[in-house]
């Protein structure tokens, strides 16, 4: 019998305390391959989660596995995992080239393969021309990209990036995002933390929302939004008969508000079950021969909106 290889990143009831200070609390996650955004305000536990994942700190309780491997087996673990810290720090005098070669030589590669992989990584992040220059002379964007090159140069299956978009100008940001997407498109893991919510919304296949050391939601952004039954979805309906729709909507248990707006023919409905509402709307429209112009979500389904619902505007705005 052959066992199926574990392709997930898993946290099983993981907690981390720094003395009496909470880092993360009872976190349980199963992260599938793809680009996963880890989002939350400063101090929410994002870096703690990533540092635990990279084995740089040990959990107070619980277990972590990446593709079935624990961080306590570095010989195998770090052949599969590339890690890029949020800190912009390098050894004195290092060039982009020496930075990569030093890493690759410690991965046990021969000289030829080291050089091939270093060039390939530099090409991936667009730094071939600057390879032999000192990193101290690089721009912020170039330093972020050389860190990315260092994290991917040994061809890992899992890439862990702590705040990789911090301080980047729009062009560098686009290039960095493209590099991450390209990596994830090969069926690998990219785990990206950010406190800038809309960034994660734009790049992620799935999100993990953190606050106060706990995971407050996880999954695809739409499904995360759908799971938040405590906060209603707002739907705007433009039609030729908003009064009838409003009257029918009030009969539904999951509708908490139906309000006709000043704009002519526009009805705002707030419901805790959007799918059920849309089914009912279809029936009402057909039975009453109502002409619908548009049906649109009033709050766009961005992670900002989700996050604001989950932890309030203060947390989302940080």
């Amino acid at each position: 019998m052959t066992s199926t290889p574990d392709t997930t990143i898993s946290f099983d009831d993981v907690s981390k305390f720094y003395g009496e200070v909470l880092g993360i609390n009872h976190v349980t996650l199963r992260i599938p391959p793809g680009l996963t955004g880890l989002v939350g305000p400063n101090g929410s536990g994002k870096s703690t989660l990533l540092n635990l994942l990279a084995g740089l700190i040990q959990p107070t309780a619980g277990e972590i596995h990446v593709l079935g491997l624990p961080p306590s087996r570095p010989n195998e673990f770090f052949r599969q995992v590339g890690y890029c810290t949020q800190y912009d720090s390098f050894s004195d005098g290092a060039t982009g080239w020496s930075f990569l070669l030093d890493t690759l030589s410690l991965h046990g590669l021969g000289r030829r393969e080291r050089e091939d992989r270093a060039w390939a990584s530099l090409d991936q992040v667009g730094l071939r021309e600057a390879a032999k220059r000192k990193i101290a002379g690089y721009s912020k964007g170039m330093r972020q990209r050389i860190k990315l090159a260092q994290a991917i140069c040994h061809d890992p299956q899992v890439l862990v990036l702590d705040e990789p978009l911090n301080g980047l100008d729009p062009i560098a940001r686009t290039e960095m995002i493209d590099s991450m997407k390209e990596f994830a498109s090969k069926g690998r893991h990219v785990l990206v933390s950010s406190h800038i919510l809309h960034e994660v919304d734009l790049i992620s296949d799935q999100v993990i929302l953190m606050h106060g050391g706990s995971v407050v939601a996880e999954g695809e952004i739409r499904s995360v939004r759908g799971e938040i039954t405590s906060h209603p979805v707002q739907v705007l309906i433009r039609s030729d008969n908003p009064h009838t729709i409003a009257a029918e909507a009030f009969r539904l248990d999951h509708v908490v508000e139906a309000r006709i707006l000043e704009e002519e023919g526009t009805l705002l409905v707030r419901t805790r079950d959007a799918d059920a509402f849309f089914d009912s709307l279809q029936t009402v429209v057909l039975e009453n021969n109502i002409e619908i112009e548009t049906v649109t979500p009033a709050d766009d389904e961005t992670v900002d909106a989700v996050y604001e619902y989950l932890i309030g505007p203060e947390g989302a705005g940080s």
């Binding site: 990279a54 084995g55 740089l56 570095p74 010989n75 195998e76 673990f77 770090f78 052949r79 995992v81 590339g82 890690y83 810290t85 800190y87 720090s89 390098f90 050894s91 890493t103 410690l106 991965h107 046990g108 260092q150």
Partner: peptide
């Protein structure tokens, strides 16, 4: 202090 030690601890080597 230089914040470079982690580069050594994410290598495929025992601590």
């Amino acid at each position: 202090l230089d914040r470079t030690l982690h580069y050594r601890l994410v290598l495929p080597m025992r601590r």
